[in-house]
Design a protein around this nucleic acid. Structure first.
Lengths: 340, 340
DNA sequence: CTGAAAGCGCTTACAG
DNA sequence: CTGAAAGCGCTTACAG
């Protein structure tokens, strides 16, 4: 267990060639004679050589890793996103360096500092709330390309990959309008988060286009979790007439709302319409199945990885802003309004 | 964007000291005079120096990363586990190198080879099904300590961290027996996976201790997913008398079974008892809430990280086998049998 | 307390 | 086609 790892020099010594020749063999150079190659390859196998990519990277001034910083992997949206990132990076021969912030800007500082020391070729960052782009730029430096995902960073001139929150919420709202709903709440999320603001805006766009004024009591905040959302259900019904439908901030909130409706003797999908956002796996299999906005987080992950690799190859392109398509998936949770 | 990164040498030149002195400042050596330190630190800040840990690791023959290989992050169990690993590694100043196999032994070979080249200090491996320990040992070499998680590897002499599958399933079965059930199925999972075998064994242990013979038709296989499990529901009811309860392979299967029961007009938690395994977040909030075996995957992740770091510090201890406690969480899905 | 020199495991011109 | 030498960005004895 404790003896030295086998190095290039060991192989060279073992078959009486120079280290340079072994290096050429390892990287499949056509320069090396077939016989020499055979000999070296046998010796590599014999000694169980493992390439030291860190040393090679140092010499070549390259990097074969990309850092991925997310809030929390236990959020299935980010877990899927990470899976997509890792899949695409792996296919390109890169390795993923993981970091998580738990929505703390202080942890984020530390994590980014630590990851930067490992000299990743690029960084994919889904910023914690209330991040400051200038501060992060100082930590990361100007030599590492960064792709910001999901939440726009003030003061940052980095690539940005966003979900089309506004359009997604508009699609959901339009669908409910077409079914005949007029009193449509926007339910859940923190109004100070950018994604919540954008989704509310999409809701407002559709309502306005339909000539309906949004009543302030129809805008209900809650933490974006199932339980907190369930606890807020009653806020929908304090005024008469109450909404007949709710566009929810995300699927977790929508599932929580459905629980809360059940608890009050209401039947989502029969006497109250609900939409979600994200299309988490559960949305397809809950009862009733949830009409939601699909954002394909795994696909977004692949997209982020491909974008950052492109940026690594061409560092001096101007930063771009990508808005990933959001798509409405209609399922059983969206009924017509009662009495219509 | 494209100019060279700032190095130790740049700092040394910038404040007229040697590289050695700068290095000492960076690592907080008490040798360096207070005034020199001030000067160097100012220059570090001025030039925006970022430490190159890879170079330091090369020189010191150390590593500051640990590789984590799982099947798929989109499985919430592994996502939680990964979150725990990353949390504990981060706290110890290590960085997580991520890899995923998607249950393919071929991908696993590639991923392990690629990660090994990055010279991680250790590897935490949740092996794909049908992995061969000898083969993996050849890829990884004998210089990197490995901790195997969740699935025992044939022919491997590595540390092993397991869930106590057998005991967990026994606890669930005993709980049902205490409620008065006699005909208790074991539902879902692939009988050729080791975790399924172990959980079935726990079920058998409890049944045997209660003097009840397990009928073969009560052992029902399905892929460990919600939809596949739902589709197998009818297999429980082909014989009369049918089981009154099912110990499920995991929570996903249990949730699928509950769907399937609903679809057949049955009411889990009222006329049929169901238990799960894993205690995924959803288990607490579904209807009825699911009685299940909690394994605390995030805690397991922390535990795995701490074990591998310990092994990194003391490479020559003999491999150990850790069995993590499994604990029954009783919720609403386990009723008494009908007519009792 | 500080600096010159060697070396970690690779790759890369350059000679031959 | 192959080898000797220099160098990537650090750290570490060793002198002074």
């Amino acid at each position: 267990m404790n003896q030295r790892r086998v190095t290039l020099a060991d192989i060279a010594r073992g078959c009486k060639v120079s280290r340079a020749t072994v290096s050429l063999v390892l990287r499949n150079s056509p320069l090396v004679a077939a016989e020499t190659r055979k000999k070296v390859e046998a010796e590599l196998k014999r000694q169980g050589y493992v390439y030291n990519r860190a040393a090679a990277n140092l010499r070549q001034r390259t990097s074969s890793s990309v850092a991925l910083v997310v809030n929390d992997l236990s959020n299935p949206f980010f877990a899927e996103f990470a899976a997509g990132v890792d899949e695409a990076l792996g296919a390109a021969g890169f390795v993923t360096l993981l970091g998580s912030t738990g929505e703390s800007t202080e942890r984020q500082r530390k994590v980014l500092a630590s990851l930067s020391e490992h000299a990743p070729a690029g960084i994919i960052l889904s910023p914690a709330e209330h991040s400051d782009g200038n501060e992060l730029l100082k930590i990361v430096g100007t030599h590492t390309p960064v792709l910001v995902f999901n939440r726009k960073l003030p003061h940052a001139r980095w690539d940005f990959l966003a979900l089309d929150n506004r359009r997604g919420a508009r699609l959901a709202t339009e669908h409910l309008l077409q079914l005949g709903h007029r009193r449509i709440a926007f339910f859940g999320g923190h109004a100070d988060s950018s994604s919540c603001r954008e989704r509310r805006q999409g809701h407002a766009d559709a309502m306005q286009a339909a000539g309906i004024a949004v009543e302030p009591p129809w805008l209900i905040e809650s933490a974006p979790t199932r339980l907190q959302a369930a606890a807020q259900t009653s806020a929908l019904f304090v005024r008469d007439p109450a909404p007949t439908a709710a566009v929810c901030y995300n699927d977790a909130v929508a599932l929580g709302l459905m629980l809360g409706l059940h608890a009050r003797g209401r039947r989502p999908g029969h006497d109250f319409a609900v939409t979600g956002f994200d299309d988490i796996p559960e949305a397809a299999v809950c009862l009733p199945p949830l009409t939601t906005v699909a954002t394909d987080p795994r696909g977004r992950g692949r997209q982020a990885a491909e974008r950052i690799l492109q940026r690594v190859r061409l560092p001096d392109t101007t930063p771009s802003e990508l808005h990933a398509a959001a798509e409405l998936v209609v399922r059983g949770s969206t009924c017509k309004p009662p009495h219509s």
